[in-house]
Write a protein that binds this DNA or RNA. Structure first.
Lengths: 204, 204, 204, 204
DNA sequence: TATGAATGAGCATTCATTCAT
DNA sequence: TATGAATGAATGCTCATTCAT
């Protein structure tokens, strides 16, 4: 009556983690389902018991990553009401969250970007709705900046574009760090970002 | 008697342009050699008279793009000695150079990054030496910032990391613009970048 | 203490019926074991408690169908001694038996034929011994025709080949009816078959 | 300038023939593209230069076979105006055409039937429009029978259903012959068919 | 030099069968 | 006995590359 009992969700998670590992070393396109299966220590066919296609596995990994990051940032921001401190936390947590996964996740981020951007109009990668994700991030930052302006801590700026530039700076820095761990010290770069943006926004 | 005289280099260039077009619509991995040949209006086999592999075509397109960008920036900077103005020009020309190719080149940039990053240790994509290219860009900016500091126009900062952050901000902004032309106004974003960085660097 | 009492044979029959249903909609090759299990309302693995393989299930369905048909014809023929009437009954019952299962069974017949013919030398499908089944049908008809000739009702013909042609005509008509229910009226076709054959065989 | 020059149509034909051979031994579903390629003495990929899919190859073989058969019958019928003789010719040529291809084509016919019937509503196998083909065959025979009735040679019958039965008889006989070459003498069976039908139709 | 016909390695996906529970 | 999770062999199709012309 009762066949092998399996925690479907846990196993799904295991597969996603194996996939992320496989994608990060070979890239989303070049990584074979066989690779994922091998990393997960299961048979090829088993993956299809949990996901309908390679793309679905890919999208799942993507979701997990961004959800985690967003949650971490949000809960960090809640700990204070000071806009300056909030910005500082946001920047810090973003980089930490990124680093936490090792440069593996950084590698795969490239594919998420590349695929997400290229397929921005296709249904298949609906899950990878980068546009929406970035929009949410911008709103998060914009809210902080607007708050700061209202409180008279920040000078008057175009908060929407400041948010874009800050996100851009963080993404772009990570990009450079991925390429060249030696030349880019991510800790010092983080400080530079904070220094630049907060210095720039604060009234003197 | 004399065989058809062909300007080898010119034809190579034509192929690269066709490739860039093909890559930009389908992505580097999904674009087929047949597509490139069709866009170039030549036979599939002919490509192999000028390039050894698909990857070589890819790398060639990459080189062209960055060389152009670098030259444009360098000649723009030469027109003035004012570090503030130089920074302004650098930012402006970078975005313009990017936009000039339409969002096509933007798309392909993603693949360059993705492939360049992933293959940073492989010989094949030696041509796509992103590490070196970014290093050069950083040096370019750092020189300007160092000048500004020496001239007393800029306050004392870690010029190396400021360069990283500036490049990052520009890359990251383009990334967002690629994803969401509607939400990101690249012109206004350019101004925000200039406003933020120059304001931040200048002594008050 | 006593395990659930199950009528093994009854369950086997249920599975066969589910299989026939599945085969008839998807075809023998395209129907999956999972489909059969679903139709039967049991687990995939359970099928293997009653059959060794998909082919065995297939063969079992085949057997059932022809056994039924043969029994129906034989018992119908027994009701009279008149060869003309016997022929009439045989034709009628054959078509009726065919129609009774709906066009579902007609569909699956094609697969039985196709598989049975193709595998006429293999052991696996020993159960689907079409050669033997058709031989039996021919003998059945031949006996009637021979009887008719002996009784002086039928003219002298090659009873063996007349049997072949009659079976052929019936099979071939069903084939056409399967393809084109609109253009082929099986009732009228049945009459035409009776008209043609009986008219032809009877002395005038 | 000029690459290998190939008679595209001739090669296509060669592939079809190889496919027919492969299909006839293994069946349409079990025959692999690799088998077809091997029989044709070419690479797997080459098949896809001439056909878009396995099904297209299948349909092509089908078309060829029926076109040939129809042409042979039509030109045979033209040689005389006597309905009896025309019927005799039609029956004869049909069997001959069938036998001419060896029992290979007979085998594959089964798959054509099976696939054609099963997919009678699908677009993919539009080429295998069995309904239309059989309708044409029936019309051909019906015309002869109608002629014979008008000329007073044949008695009054339902010519439409007589046509169906005749076609059925021929198909069904071939079916039996495919299954059992030993028990069915196709030559004698042909005579039996002619004997039965012409005898039955002719006025005495 | 230019071509495109030919090739076959490579890969996502399917599904009959097994077996731990 | 019944199950369905796990499996991997099997296969249609793609596409970079080669090479005869």
């Amino acid at each position: 009556m009762t066949p092998r009992i399996v925690n479907k969700e846990a196993k799904k998670m295991e597969i996603i983690q194996a996939a992320v590992k496989a994608f990060s070393t070979k890239g989303m396109v070049k990584a074979k389902m066989a690779d994922i299966a091998q990393v997960a220590g299961i048979g090829k066919g088993t993956i299809y018991e949990y996901f309908r296609s390679k793309e679905e596995v890919f999208a799942a990994g993507f979701q997990i990553f961004f959800q985690e990051m967003k949650q971490q940032i949000e809960s960090a921001i809640k700990t204070t009401c000071d806009p300056v401190e909030q910005l500082r936390l946001l920047i810090n947590v973003s980089f930490k969250s990124f680093l936490h996964h090792g440069s593996d996740i950084a590698m795969i981020m490239m594919d998420y970007w590349a695929e997400g951007i290229r397929n921005k109009d296709e249904k298949i990668l609906d899950a990878i709705n980068l546009r929406k994700i970035y929009s949410e991030f911008r709103t998060m930052i914009r809210t902080i900046v607007d708050n700061g302006m209202r409180q008279g801590v920040f000078r008057t700026v175009d908060s929407h574009h400041v948010a874009s530039v800050l996100i851009g700076a963080m993404d772009g820095l990570m990009l450079q760090w991925i390429m060249d761990h030696q030349d880019i010290d991510l800790d010092k770069a983080t400080e530079s970002v904070m220094d630049l943006f907060i210095n720039c926004l604060c009234k003197h």
